[in-house]
Write a protein that binds this DNA or RNA. Structure first.
Lengths: 245, 245
DNA sequence: ACCTGAACACCGTTCAAGT
DNA sequence: ACCTGAACACCGTTCAAGT
């Protein structure tokens, strides 16, 4: 992935003084993503990134304008990975395809809690985000709606996926990281608090606490997505009966 | 804007020793919200908050455990304001009520771009978030679904509102703040870039760019919400026909 | 019980200088 | 063209001390 390119003279010369570090935008972003996955947004400091790349702090600024742009580009680079997953998508049912794409997107975002907040913020900078928005929009276009409806429906799907994934992907509020046990403990703590609430004041919480305790984020997401897509299908059918709805 | 409050004795007495500042959790959070509204998450530093409160930095730590908890509590305190708006909600159509509550929530979040990321993160700390989740869940309970379906539907609505509002509320990526002109300039910049894209590679973008240029965030949100609620209504009707769906 | 100022250990960003 | 180390101006948090 990272060829050096600086010493192309064949003869392996002695680096008598430490070779100067040499980066590329790709290696900078890859390093940033590694740190983000390991230690979250807080852990991504320019100093930590420079150390991982084996260079000085200031070199990072050659490739990105600052920490914000670094985060935007790192998030976007991860989103680019989705296109491999959805390369084969193209059934005769646009809504089925929409569902497949949305779930692939969810899967990519949900186990990177840092991602949600930085995706689709700046389409000039974030080319993969734009392409994904485009890809989803193209599916929606197949439903025979008006441009306005297409815009609204596409934004709704994208907003739902990103919003829900970012929400669900939120780290437990402590420093603890990953691990099956941690999630169970986390859920147990919450359900414990919820069960201690007054049942008269919180009938809904008591109604769903058992479901919450054994819920899967992915199923919860899929269920919500299906509600949204069912509404969209309804609209598409109404639209085809009455073309200018 | 900033009255001192320390020299209320009429006679301009020499403050030989400055009166000690006195806070409360409420005043700390109110100060935090003011700063957040004025200058965003980045602008909320403990030092800036202490200065606004007229005290020393360390006093803030008497009321909150740190900056993270401050953000969580500030966000939750704003959410508490929603209950006044929805006090009268209670028609005979649960989905209509759901719609009203969701829109009130959206309105509260969308012009506070900092809010979305901190809402509903810790229900032990954030009591208003929990109560809002409860309130929405109670409406969903009226639809005659199973606990599992109620859990899923409620989470979907909440996720959609928060996610979309946080998404739409995002500041333009520069330092520019508010103003009608700024939004138009912002939209013009994006649509300009979009129109410059290759129409063959980006048919969807070209299809909706005019709509995007004149879109209203609120209408965009409402349209997406209506899709979701239409799907939910469909499910509720199917459920009442076949009680154990 | 609550507030203070100073100190500590960090951080993003810049810049003149190097290769 | 790209990298470096040191410096600057900040920041969250802690702590011993005050009232």
């Amino acid at each position: 992935m990272a060829e050096q390119g600086t010493e192309s003279t064949g003869r392996a010369r002695q680096p008598r003084t430490r070779t100067r570090a040499s980066h590329s935008l790709d290696s900078v972003l890859a390093g940033a993503v590694e740190i983000l996955d390991e230690s979250g947004v807080q852990g991504l400091t320019i100093r930590a990134l420079a150390a991982r790349l084996g260079g000085g702090v200031a070199s990072v600024y050659w490739y990105v304008s600052g920490r914000d742009e670094l985060l935007d580009l790192a998030a976007d680079s991860v989103l680019g990975g989705i296109f491999e997953q959805i390369a084969d998508v193209g059934s005769d049912d646009a809504i089925d395809d929409l569902r497949t794409i949305a779930i692939a997107m969810f899967d990519t975002i949900v186990d990177r809690p840092w991602l949600g907040a930085y995706v689709l913020r700046d389409t000039e900078l974030q080319i993969h985000s734009l392409q994904l928005y485009e890809r989803i929009g193209e599916e929606v276009m197949r439903l025979g709606l008006t441009p306005r409806q297409v815009f609204h429906a596409t934004s709704a799907v994208v907003g739902f996926v990103i919003g829900t994934a970012a929400d669900l992907g939120q780290e437990p509020p402590a420093v603890v990281v990953s691990g099956e046990v941690t999630r169970e403990q986390y859920l147990a703590k919450i359900t414990g608090e919820w069960r201690a609430l007054d049942a008269t004041a919180y009938p809904f919480i008591h109604h769903i606490v058992d479901e919450f305790e054994r819920h899967s984020d992915r199923e919860q997401f899929a269920a919500g997505l299906d509600l949204l897509l069912a509404g969209l299908r309804l609209k598409a059918e109404a639209g085809s009966a009455e073309p200018l709805g």
